[in-house]
Design a binder for these strands. Structure first.
Lengths: 123, 123
DNA sequence: GTCGTTGCAAAGCGTTTGCAGCCTA
DNA sequence: TAGGCTGCAAACGCTTTGCAACGAC
């Protein structure tokens, strides 16, 4: 990743402006507002490049296509709204992980996802 | 789902014998030991039918293809081994979920996945 | 001017579907 | 014997890749 193209700039901007994880399609649509002719392949290639550069992080939710967010945030988890399908960040962590890890297993990481209705959809 | 075929029996048996969640491919391979000519389409069709019947449950892990396990177990979560790629059940639940749910959000469910090395791979 | 990057179209890959024949009830 | 079920192959949707042209440095 060596050159700054208008396509790459549009993809970065879309992720920064969104403030929450975006899917490849959402990212493509959002980037098209800046660069109308941008191809989906370019979006995928830049996702890969920006991830290898450590600029973005992959957010994988169970049964969902991957989404992407700007890297460097504090440890956090996600809340997935079942109605509007948006993903929100939640602070904190339930902890107590060692207690549920079976004997002899080596714990390296964890993922934690909440489901329900976001504040807008619950209203 | 009205008839008991040898294919369906093989798929049920594979899930029961495994004791841990299986992916469609794993299920296909395992069922082939009983019915050598079984097609992958049949596996997918039976997964769907058995799920609609409530006989099996879908286990979705972040960034992983879905796996399936026999339904009716107690509330539990999963441990995903990064080396052998197997998925194990873990008892218990960290709890304390309300504490991390943002104000105004309605919590309906949660998923919780541990990553690391299983007891075999850690040795 | 170089060569990293792009858009397009084709190729992959896992999952689903259409269809004719099979086999359970 | 009826019609649910199966295997095969084609269709699908999403992601990746090959390639010639473009454009950032």
């Amino acid at each position: 990743m060596q050159r700054e193209t208008k396509q790459r700039r549009a993809i970065r901007k879309a992720l920064i402006d969104a403030g929450h994880p975006l899917s490849p399609q959402e990212l493509h649509e959002s980037a098209q507002e800046d660069v109308s002719g941008i191809g989906i392949a370019t979006v995928y290639r830049n996702i890969k490049a920006l991830h290898e550069d450590g600029w973005l992080e992959i957010v994988e939710l169970p049964g969902e296509p991957p989404r992407y967010e700007v890297a460097g945030k504090e440890h956090h988890h996600h809340f997935h709204c079942r109605r509007c399908d948006k993903v929100y960040e939640v602070e904190g962590c339930p902890g107590n992980l060692k207690a549920v890890t079976p004997e002899g297993f080596e714990l390296e990481g964890h993922e934690f996802v909440l489901y329900g209705l976001c504040v807008k959809c619950a209203a």
